[in-house]
Amino acid sequence: MSLSLSQKKGLSLPKPRDLARYIFSLPFAYVGTVLLLLFAYYTRPALLSPLLLLLIIRQAAPLGIVVLGQSLCMRVLSLDLSIGGVIVAVSYILTSGVLPFSEPVLVLICVGFGLMIGSINALLITRLRASSVIVTLAMAMILSGIVISLSQYHAPSDAPEILRYIGQKRIGVFPIALFVWLAVLIPSVIFLRISVFGRYVDAIGANPNAAWTSGIPYIWVVTIVHIMSSLFAVFSGLLLVGFVGVGSIDIGQDLALNSLAAVILGGVTFGSGKGGVIGPTVAAFMLTFSFNLLTSLGLGEPGKLMIQGGIIAVAAIVYATRQAK
């Protein structure tokens, strides 16, 4: 039996089974967030006060921003583990006092630095066909190593004034960090929805070989993705340095792994070309919320480690089964 397109068009009513399948197909972060909020409602209702929630959102902003880049990387079947290294370097550039420039110039240097790291990552991955895991992990280690060795001579000092302002102040009840997050998030969503670039990201994620043989500028797209990811890491680093107020050599160290976890919870899967920006964003909030919940339950650091480990194990399994197909 065959129906042509025009005959069948517009005749699809959702069935209950399809609805169940739809809910099941939603990113885990949506269901997870609802469950967590319910759990908090019964055990630690204080966490749900608007003020605390806004604080948690502010805390989630740096993760939320790097997640945008990580999710892009994963959608083109790559990964970015250099995030932590970039953030440490950003912290050093801003707070070491070695560079005798004004604050805006330092911020611009950070942006340029992000461009450079993203380009190097992309170059090694696309031209030398090196594994993205190895390349970006090595990059993170090298950057951290350089910063640690340099820090022996210059103890970090205070963060620039503007950044502390952005990181710590509010407009009304809303922390400025939330607006920064939205200012990065909303253009990203729109850009990915309507641009040729967004279509190409989908295509490469769905079938990189087909993208290659049909003349999609594969290398260019992957390069842009890695540059964007490093730039998002720089923005996230600016926010973090502002929060903390002083430079540090272990700032943002768990952001790479947490972003990986958030992207997976947010429904981005390797090799399917599926996954949006909103899912990982919700997941960034969910993870941050769960860490706070664990802390309030007296399980802070150990619980955090277990959650991170569990999510990454699941991610590895998902990755392996997809590869096996």
Binding site: A203, A206, N207, N209, G273, K274
Partner: peptide, 9 residues
């Protein structure tokens, strides 16, 4: 399947 189409799209 491997080189031509985006099967999941």
């Amino acid at each position: 399947k491997t080189e031509g189409l985006y099967l999941t799209l």
